[in-house]
Design a binder for these strands. Structure first.
Length: 486
RNA sequence: GGCGGUAUCGUCUAGGGGACUAGGACGGAGCCCUCUCAAGGCUCAAACACGGGUUCGAAUCCCGUUACCGCUACCA
């Protein structure tokens, strides 16, 4: 009997056959939030019994994904394959207590029975023929070395549990066939391995995808036959793609690492994932990890599958970007800037104050870290590319543009102290002298400085860029304009 | 086919018998702000799957139907 007052123990149990999928990440997140809120333990178990498909690389990718999201686990990582002796002991125990029996049917025989049933339009269920064998016959077959699998004998009645998200779910036992728990090669089948491990790890709440609902009655039967009280179960809904089907590659990125590479912040990813299938109630949306821990509850879990909407993820990321401090963003932006070849580590370090101010300037108008890189590029010495759309729109009249830029240069040369105020005064005066709207000056200048139609306020841009780089950009613009004109 | 699960705007959701003319958010349309783009503010379009009950009263409870999803392996 589990102690109801003991701290809960939950687990995330991925099989290392790929990357960390967003669906898995969300299941892990819910378990983690629950453990952190209750002071319980969040354990990790790698389900690597399928040696053919499991790889170390995939295992590493899953760990890295969890670490990036900030989902730290307690105790040591359990590898399911290492539990083989215990799985076999449990199967033998079930055999000895009569809860399970040996099945000598071959896979080919089973397949034939299945096909015969399908031909009759019947649903197939193993007919227990091996359980009806005389004890002497069983003895004879075992002694003659005939291979056998071990099947669990499902008792009469009904198996039900009070699911933490769905309420009571019941399965008539007659609908559950005598399932195999140990293969003829002596290795365990999933349901046995899971139950054996969860008992061994002292798991008190199994929170997993609702695709496991139909495994649950089998597992409850195994708990009982093994002399254990089943844990609580919480079956959370799945994540689907925009077409309503299970989320897969053809819906775009499904690996959390993909979103990491696209410049999504882990805090935003976690926030977004949490909101798919869980709600704190009311209108709360943008939350920190700490707030989610405080607010999390099983009662707020949704029953319905959610569809992954990357648009909302990007919006969420923009929110987190805007709210984060430059100091917090710096470690995420710096590697991206270096990777893109925009700046070097030394460059950023030598002008740290300036760099942090630049981050503050850009973060509010960016949705991803990659957006920030794009917008930050003009503030670094490397030559810029001119966006054709910007050129067409703001420099359509080459001669006029050249004239404006020269006038701007003259004005700027006379500004001693570069502050937003002094620059604004100078440029607005220029507009007045020339009798044009301020925008007619600012926009062509913006293209000259950044190559883009989009940037922070033009005076902030000038200050951040400084007189030297500004003049360089203007000279480059002249060259460009003259080349096009000629 | 059998069994199980689910059903509120296009999407994420609030709602747990009367507070519902159904709220918020993303996305869309528009306005304001404005040197651009964001951010921010405001406005608009947009949903209780259907049919029966129960009840004075149902988005909310019950039953059917439909649709969708999952499982139906000596996979996990």
């Amino acid at each position: 009997m589990p102690d109801p007052l003991a701290p809960p123990r939950v687990r995330f149990a991925p099989s290392p056959t790929g990357y960390l999928h967003v669906g898995g990440a969300r299941t892990a997140l819910f378990n983690w939030l629950y453990a952190r809120q209750t002071g319980g333990a969040f354990l990790l178990r790698v389900e690597d019994t399928d040696k053919a498909r499991s790889t170390d690389e995939s295992e590493r990718a899953i760990f890295e994904g969890l670490e990036w999201l900030g989902l730290n686990w307690d105790e040591h990582v359990v590898h399911q394959a290492l539990g083989l002796p215990r799985h076999q002991r449990d199967a033998n125990f079930l055999l000895e207590t009569g809860a399970a029996y040996r099945c000598f049917c071959t896979q080919a025989e089973l397949e034939a029975m299945r096909q015969a049933a399908t031909a009759r339009k019947d649903s197939f269920k193993y007919d227990r023929r091996c359980d009806l064998l005389a004890p002497e016959e069983i003895m004879r077959r075992v002694e003659s070395g005939m291979p056998f699998s071990v099947r669990f004998r499902v008792p009469e009645g009904e198996t039900a549990w009070d699911d933490e998200v769905h309420g009571r779910i019941a399965f008539p036992n007659k609908d559950i066939e005598d399932f195999v728990i140990l293969r003829s090669d002596g290795t365990p089948i999933y349901n046995l391995a899971v139950v054996s491990d969860d008992i061994d790890m002292g798991i008190t709440l199994v929170m997993r995808g609702d695709d496991h609902i139909s495994n649950t009655p089998k597992q409850i039967q195994l708990y009982r036959a093994l002399g254990n009280e089943p844990p609580r179960f919480a079956h959370v809904p799945m994540i689907h793609g925009m077409d309503g089907k299970k989320l897969s590659k053809r819906h775009g990125a499904t690996a959390v690492a993909d979103y990491q590479n696209e410049g999504i912040l882990p805090g935003a990813m976690v926030n977004f994932l949490a909101l798919m299938g869980w709600s704190p109630g009311g209108d709360r949306e943008v939350m920190s990890l700490e707030e989610m821990i405080a607010l999390f509850s099983l009662a707020g879990l949704q029953k319905k599958a959610a569809i992954f909407d990357t648009k909302k993820l990007e919006w969420m990321n923009g929110q987190h970007l805007s709210r984060a401090s430059a100091m917090e963003l710096e470690p995420r932006l710096t590697p991206a800037l270096i990777k893109a070849g925009v700046a070097t580590a030394e460059m950023l370090e030598s002008r740290r104050e300036w760099y942090l101010e630049l981050i503050d300037l850009l973060k509010v108008r960016s949705r991803t870290v990659l957006d920030m890189v794009r917008q930050a590029a003009p503030f670094f010495p490397a030559a810029i590319a001119y966006d054709p759309a910007a050129v067409d729109k703001q420099w359509s009249d080459r001669e006029a543009s050249l004239a404006i830029l020269h006038a701007v240069q003259d004005k700027l040369a006379k500004v001693d102290v570069w502050t937003p105020q002094s620059l604004e005064a100078a440029l607005r005066a220029l507009a007045e002298e020339r009798g044009v709207a301020a925008g007619k000056i600012f926009q062509p200048l913006r293209v000259a400085l950044t190559g883009l139609t989009v940037s922070p306020g033009i005076f902030e841009v000038l200050v951040a860029m400084g007189p030297e780089l500004t003049m360089q950009r203007l000279r480059d613009a002249y060259d460009f304009l003259k080349a096009v004109a000629a």
